[in-house]
């Protein structure tokens, strides 16, 4: 049987339904954006020459990119260990759902709200800056490369955070530990983005695309790595199948050998 979009969609719908009644996840989705929207705006409104508005703009825009990292990491870190704790993982693994379908469904459920919120935050911030910040700051923020960076980096950073979160979740036995580790482990790629935002690397469309390609490569690596971890036996028992297991013979062969 091949990959089924229907099964992946079933996973996505279930995850979203579960999230909306999960206080911890709702809290994360509501509280974090409030922080990520208030702090950059208040910083940008206060920024004015001769202060280092370039640094402040860089910091603020970078902070906006932390949102699509922290939110999906928190959600993804819950995705497997949360099911283990509820005892729902085993029934799911006994269905025909493929590993790829389960992973795509869970990853989409973390990606879609996170990226949507990240775009919304950016939109609100740039509009607020246009209304209330000084002209110098407006000129600094309203640059095409900033828009491109947000549009491109938000889903790619979120993708990395999701694979890291799911990988940690698959190996954890405690939701909170998984979420803390997942958030920490998903932050390093932000360093690359910071180079653009602080204009250490000269910001341009080409630079943004190159960094985007690097992040996409990291995402692909993460997908592959999580795929290797997502083994039914390992998830149920905490152990991998032995080599002898993989070489086991078909019944007809067994019968003829005896």
């Amino acid at each position: 049987m091949s990959f089924s979009l229907g099964r992946a969609r079933a996973v996505l719908v279930k995850e979203l339904r579960d999230f909306r009644r999960n206080k911890f996840i709702i809290g994360t989705i509501v509280v974090l954006p409030l922080i990520f929207i208030i702090v950059p705006i208040s910083d940008l409104f206060r920024a004015a020459p001769p202060r280092l508005q370039t640094v402040q703009v860089g910091t603020s825009l970078l902070l906006l990119l932390v949102a699509p990292v922290v939110m999906p990491a928190t959600i993804a870190a819950y995705s497997v260990v949360g099911e283990k704790e509820q005892g729902t993982l085993e029934p799911v693994l006994t269905t025909p759902v493929r590993r790829e379908e389960l992973l795509i469904g869970k990853a989409s459920a973390a990606l879609l709200p996170s990226v949507a919120i990240a775009y919304l935050l950016f939109t609100v911030v740039v509009i607020a800056v246009r209304i209330g910040a000084s002209h110098v700051v407006v000129d600094d923020v309203w640059q095409p490369q900033n828009f491109l960076a947000q549009a491109l980096f938000s889903p790619l950073l979120a993708g990395w955070a999701i694979w890291v979160g799911i990988a940690i979740s698959a190996r954890s036995s405690d939701v909170r530990v998984a979420q803390q580790l997942g958030t920490l482990a998903s932050l390093p790629p932000l360093a690359i983005v910071a180079l653009i935002e602080y204009q250490v690397i000269t910001p341009s469309v080409t630079t943004a695309l190159i960094i985007g390609a690097i992040l996409a490569g990291l995402d692909a690596l993460g997908w592959w790595f999580v795929g290797t971890l997502f083994n039914r036996e390992r998830l149920i028992t905490g152990r991998n199948a032995t080599r002898a297991t993989r070489r086991r013979v078909a019944p007809q062969e067994a019968a003829s050998s005896t």
């Binding site: 079933a10 996973v11 719908v13 339904r17 509820q86 005892g87 729902t88 085993e90 029934p91 799911v92």
Partner: peptide, 23 residues
Amino acid sequence: PEAPGLYLRLSVRENLQYFAGLF
């Protein structure tokens, strides 16, 4: 399994809809 493993935050219908989708 021994423990039915239902999603406690979902309704009975939503639980079954999920598994109907998986099958």
